[in-house]
Design a protein around this nucleic acid. Structure first.
Lengths: 252, 252
DNA sequence: ACCAACGATGAAAGCTGCTGAACGGCAACT
DNA sequence: AGTTGCCGTTCAGCAGCTTTCATCGTTGGT
């Protein structure tokens, strides 16, 4: 790799991270320590970054440019934030991940910003939050745009989902009972079932208020899901219910 | 391969990458190192790129996509507004209309806001502009999201377009010559051809600067289009060219 | 149709500047 | 104070740059 290309890629890497250590840079760029140091020197002269002991920190605009819409409009609760961070930790670089709509999933998406992923989503807010990131390759499902939830739905969406395979699905849900997962919004159910069908691993994110209350439209039985991420206020009976059904339960 | 063709293809290659090394260019263009160097020299003089050790970096590279989109929409905005208004007048309530990306088409979309329509688009900016309107039913195509132009492209997009029929297509274009319509952005051509295929009536919107200059990738012959909407500065020879090919020409 | 002039092309030569490894010094931590 | 890890410097090796030149195809003129 040539010097100019390395420097461009370093700049790109700083778009999603505000600190990078030398070892990571050497590995990612497949270059020697010396060369990376020289690159960092040059970029420091250009005021792109500041060299610090062990690596460099970004001098550019704060990295929270992406997803500032979420802070403004949705105002994520602490719980959702913590759930998001925990769920994002389950995702590894290089995976293909499906994200459905919903504010809890948006909290996960925000935490995924630093990873290198291929993301498939039917949610416009999530797409808008991730589209500027160079480390994320983004594919939208298409379909009828529900103006209320800003998600794409319907036969076109389902048909497109049927044509892909994903490592992991991260999905929000309206309610969880012993009968399974269900939703109150009729329109999204078809797409969600298709998402479950094409994903290798299914992760449900849901705060504790979603448990016990009855949903209208069944989405999937408990057996369809591999992992549920919720918060510490989840009643033990539900933890037991999920675990006896072979579901991994994580509490943020 | 001729020098001019090589240089055009180099410009094209920089649409999807911001750095290209010499070896890659020689291989892709099937030309000697010397010739590629000479091409790069010329393109550097034209401020298209900057030569650097080991290759060249794009000078068009807009780090902020919002910026160059803004620039493009400000440029010629008067003309585009008028074209938009005129083209929107061709659309009747109740139709299904496909809108492709591009700032001229966005100008049409603004003028469509008062009509009752079913709109299909692969453009995120257009979708964002129309999604809140109750009189517009909006369907997105899906596909890979090109972060630079904020349009959805690729096989998923084309597949979805193949599954629909529309009354009218409104499309922007890179260039118009007697050889037909063409574009400089390779990626969008596939989707645009599919759009033409499934639309009953094809309307091209293009200000006069798009005429005569050579485009790289052919999109469609003149015969594929029914109406062209341009501005009053369009040279008479091009008006004749279009009319003798049976195309309706409207000047805003 | 032929030939000369021109520009474009690709190979070779010599030079420039980048690269990675090695070494010694310095900062942080024990 | 000792150890570990990081930094800056130096230097040989080589990849890439510029220049030059022979060759080829094209153009324009006779």
């Amino acid at each position: 790799m040539k010097a100019a290309e390395r420097q461009l890629r370093i700049r790109q890497m700083f778009e999603s991270r505000d600190f990078l250590d030398l070892e990571t840079l050497c590995r990612e760029l497949d270059a020697s320590e010396s060369s990376v140091r020289r690159d960092l020197d040059i970029l420091e002269q250009e005021k792109i970054l500041r060299r610090v002991y062990g690596g460099a920190v970004s001098l550019q605009a704060p990295p929270s440019r992406a997803f500032d819409y979420a802070v403004e409009s949705v105002r994520l609760s602490d719980e959702k934030d913590r759930i998001g961070r925990l769920a994002a930790g389950l995702i590894e670089d290089g995976q293909t991940v499906i994200l459905d709509g919903g504010s809890t999933v948006a909290a996960v998406a925000r935490e995924l910003a630093t990873k290198s992923l291929h993301i498939v989503t039917n949610s416009l807010p999530i797409a808008e939050g991730l589209e500027a990131l160079r480390n994320i390759e983004l594919t939208l499902t298409g379909g009828y745009l529900d103006p209320r939830h800003r998600v794409m739905l319907g036969p076109f969406c389902e048909q497109m989902l049927g044509a892909i395979r994903a490592d992991t699905l991260i999905m929000g849900i309206g309610s969880i009972t012993e009968a399974g997962f269900s939703n109150n919004n009729t329109l999204v159910v078809g797409s969600e079932q298709k998402m479950i069908e094409v994903a290798g691993k299914v992760i449900i994110v849901a705060d504790h208020t979603k448990f016990g209350r009855g949903g209208m439209i069944p989405v999937a039985p408990l057996s369809a899901v591999h992992t549920v991420v919720s918060d510490k206020d989840l009643a033990p009976e539900y933890i037991d219910l999920l675990r006896t059904n072979g579901i991994e339960v994580l509490l943020a």
